[in-house]
């Protein structure tokens, strides 16, 4: 099957007063039509910048995509002129943003904001777009949608606003939806509803989507594959079930350990990953996770590892770690039962 999206060696940098921030530093991945992918990582690891780069929405200056290719339907988004990119935005690729409180324009009505894309891309007139807007709002579960068309965003709750955002994203039947932390700003109960809605709609419309989140728990039931990002790199790629069953990067282990679990005994405490994400102006010369990694050896500080297939795992499972590569010292380590962890690193 031809890929819908193919990202090759993407580099996005921000030119700031303090130096060049290498926010996305050589990211490659592919996505088939209708496929769902989760990109997971802490804030500041480059996942949102990756998503914005796909639509060329990086604010410039200070940001710039300095290298790479983004092939969407076989055409390089980075080589298109501005009009072509605009023809794709909101049409073939749509985006759902993190904070529905600030992502909707406070001074425009809901119908105005939803119908904008319809009128632009599908050439509907006011009446058609209004009708379609009502359908879309009903589709995303907004009660009495018709009477709420001329309301303003502040008259909606957070969850309802995110439903409006989803309606906007769906409006032109996109082939790909990018959802950047779509539930982070919402209450826990609402989060589940919104995720359910997204999952069902993607299935119904056969839309490919990329779900970006800092929470492994969120992607678990949502996507077919997961990419874990750290410090501007993808550090682990795997099928979702494989990743949870057989993770192969110490950072992924850290993320998994920090998910609260109901079957945890009281003595097993939640274990956060110590330290901060790396400074992307002057990243560590070796593995970017090395400064926080409790399993590291000298080589980790010296040479950056490549993203390679891991032994004893499914075919498309890759990891960027010296320890879990063939011949590494972590290939047989089970992160669940490992007891040597958590030796506190003294500064």
């Amino acid at each position: 099957m031809p890929e819908l999206l193919e990202v090759r060696d993407l580099h996005t940098q921000f030119f700031t007063r303090d130096g060049i921030v290498r926010a996305v530093d050589g990211v490659s991945f592919t996505l088939a039509a209708g496929e769902t992918l989760g990109i997971v990582g802490e804030s500041g690891c480059g996942k949102s910048v990756t998503a914005l780069s796909l639509m060329r929405l990086i604010p410039q200056p200070p940001g710039k995509i300095t290298q790479g290719e983004i092939l969407f339907d076989g055409r390089d988004v980075l080589k298109m002129d501005d009009d072509e990119v605009r023809g794709i935005r909101g049409n073939a690729i749509a985006m759902i943003f993190q904070d529905p409180m600030t992502s909707l324009n406070p001074v425009l009505t809901i119908s105005r904001q939803v119908s904008e894309a319809l009128e632009l891309h599908l050439k509907m007139d006011r009446n058609e777009s209004r009708k379609r807007t009502i359908e879309l709002l009903e589709l995303v579960g907004i009660p009495s949608a018709k009477s709420r068309l001329d309301d303003y965003p502040h008259q909606f709750s957070g969850g309802m606003r995110q439903r409006v955002m989803i309606a906007m994203a769906l409006s032109c039947n996109p082939k790909l939806i990018l959802a950047d932390e779509p539930t982070t700003a919402l209450d826990v109960t609402i989060q589940a509803q919104i995720l359910d809605l997204l999952k069902n709609l993607a299935r119904e419309f056969r839309t490919a989507f990329i779900l970006i989140t800092h929470d492994l728990g969120v992607v678990a039931g949502m996507t077919q594959r997961i990419h874990v990002m750290y410090g501007g790199h993808i550090v682990e790629k795997a099928d979702t079930n494989e990743l949870f069953a057989n993770p192969k990067h110490p950072y992924t282990w850290g993320l998994l350990r920090s998910i609260p679990r109901l079957d945890q005994t009281r003595r097993e405490k939640l274990r956060p990953i110590e330290g901060l994400p790396p400074d992307l102006i002057a990243p560590p010369p070796g593995c970017r996770f090395a400064p926080r990694c409790q399993y590291k050896r000298d080589i980790c500080d010296e040479k950056p590892p490549e993203l390679v297939a891991v032994p004893n795992a499914k075919a498309d499972h890759e990891s960027r770690c010296w320890g879990t590569q063939t011949g590494g010292w972590l290939t047989t380590t089970d992160w669940r039962t490992d007891t040597t962890v958590f030796t506190k690193v003294e500064a």
């Binding site: 639509m55 929405l57 990119v85 605009r86 023809g87 794709i88 935005r89 909101g90 049409n91 749509a94 985006m95 943003f97 904070d99 600030t102 992502s103 909707l104 324009n105 406070p106 001074v107 425009l108 904008e116 894309a117 632009l120 891309h121 955002m165 906007m168």
Partner: peptide
């Protein structure tokens, strides 16, 4: 603001983004 980014993500022309989305808020 985020809503300007949202407007751009819909594929609106820059002029529309500025006049319809940014200016109306800026004039308040």
């Amino acid at each position: 603001q985020d809503y300007v980014r949202t407007a751009r993500s819909k594929g609106l022309a820059e002029g529309t983004v500025i006049i319809r989305h940014a200016l109306k808020n800026a004039l308040i």
